[in-house]
């Protein structure tokens, strides 16, 4: 039998730290693209162990697990301890679609007092705390790439983007971060 395959993240070895800003690729996580009608939410919430948020631009987090509202019937579920999310949902008979996208996305943490400013280099949304408070999450754009942006702290954001866009997203973040 062949050796077990090694995991190589798209941003292997990338990181940047400057005055007031740090860009850190997040370690592998498991992710689920969850689609479901309203009637299925309680069953799915129970299976996942957190309440799926039903308000636009919000997220629910519990320990290592979080669910981000992306659309009226769409959530991005993330588990930083790589729990098998698809398996959790497999037992749910209520109508839904659960698709494993653990490897489709990669995450970059943008932290520091300049986080908002650096994100402003490519994200056209108003990211001020009143409009994009801690816990807010939204699919949006960063430069010419689509991202999911989640504010995890006053001065901390998590960017989720597709694997092959991560080099572009990281490079643009770094370019903006270097303009102190």
């Amino acid at each position: 039998m062949a050796e077990i395959a090694r995991r190589m993240s798209a941003l292997e070895g990338r990181a940047y730290e400057g005055p007031g800003i740090a860009l850190t690729p997040d370690p592998p996580a498991s992710r689920l693209s969850l689609r479901a009608p309203e009637a299925s939410l309680s069953a799915l919430s129970k299976a996942l162990g957190l309440t799926l948020p039903d308000k636009p631009k919000t997220a629910a987090a519990d320990g290592s697990r979080a669910a981000l509202w992306l659309g009226p019937d769409e959530w991005l579920v993330i588990d930083e301890e790589c729990a098998d999310l698809a398996a959790l949902c497999a037992s749910v008979s209520a109508l839904h679609s659960a698709v494993d996208i653990s490897h489709r996305n990669t995450a970059i943490l943008v932290t520091g007092e300049r986080a908002e400013d650096v994100l402003g280099a490519g994200c056209p949304q108003d990211l001020s705390p009143t409009r994009f408070p801690v816990g807010a999450a939204s699919r949006t754009v960063f430069g010419k790439a689509e991202i999911v942006l989640w504010r995890i702290g006053e001065e901390a954001f998590r960017i989720e983007c597709w694997r092959s866009f991560s080099d572009y997203v990281f490079s643009l973040l770094e370019k903006a971060a270097r303009e102190a």
Binding site: P56, K57, P72, P124, Q125, R139, T140, V141
Partner: peptide, 18 residues
């Protein structure tokens, strides 16, 4: 760049997202 009100997100969002 226009702002467009998304009836599902229930707020105005930049045209680049549309």
């Amino acid at each position: 760049m226009l702002l467009i009100h998304c009836p599902y997100c229930e707020e105005e969002r930049p045209e680049l997202e549309f």
